[in-house]
């Protein structure tokens, strides 16, 4: 069963890398581990017959957004988080953070419970629908530019706003200082 094996490999890689992302004290290593996690997710997308999304994931997330993060980490030469040399420092922090950890654990339990108690999820993921339709790029384009036309245009405005916002926020003003 190569596909099952691939699924568990990619899933383990994605979860492991993501867990390490939040466990790292060095932001540079966090960014790199997140890239690995995105790569594994792209593998899962290929298994789900979505090759175009998988490649877009690599190009947009790993190739552009993460380079931006890397750029900022390098630019700020960001200091490492207040370094306790203790590997369990995260869990041992003071009151409020510990509540946060408990809440996160509760969320995981609740999500798993919800997933396990709903019926109809146990069937194989590719039971319905034709793989050729789902993985077809022309079909994707057709639906995107007809049914989701308004959302598409709205997104372009969002990008424009984000661009202007980023320039205004991060740009140095010459009349100050």
């Amino acid at each position: 069963m190569p596909e099952t094996l691939q699924f568990y490999l990619f899933a383990a890689l994605a979860i492991g890398a993501s867990a390490l992302v939040i466990g790292q004290r060095n932001p540079m290593h966090s960014v790199l581990l997140l890239i690995a996690s995105f790569g594994a997710l792209a593998g899962l997308y290929v298994l789900l017959d979505a090759p175009f999304v998988a490649v877009a994931q690599i190009i947009i997330y790993a190739g552009a957004i993460m380079v931006l993060f890397l750029f900022v980490v390098m630019l700020l030469n960001a200091p490492q988080e207040d370094a306790h040399k203790d590997p369990f420092a995260l869990v041992r922090q003071s009151g409020l953070t510990r509540v946060g950890a408990v809440l996160a654990l509760l969320l995981l339990l609740q999500l798993s419970w919800a997933l396990l108690s709903v019926s109809g999820l146990a069937g194989p993921v590719d039971a319905g629908g034709d793989a050729a339709v789902v993985s077809s790029v022309p079909e994707l384009g057709r639906v995107l530019f007809t049914d989701y036309m308004f959302a598409f245009e709205a997104t372009s405005v969002l990008i424009l706003v984000a661009m202007v916002g980023a320039v205004v926020l991060a740009g140095r003003r010459e009349n100050e200082e």
Binding site: A11, A14, A104, L111, L115, L121
Partner: peptide, 17 residues
């Protein structure tokens, strides 16, 4: 084949992380 629930559980774990 892999059940849908497995993908959802991976997703839930990632979200919790």
């Amino acid at each position: 084949m892999i059940p849908l629930s497995h993908y959802l559980i991976v997703s839930a774990v990632l979200f919790s992380i």
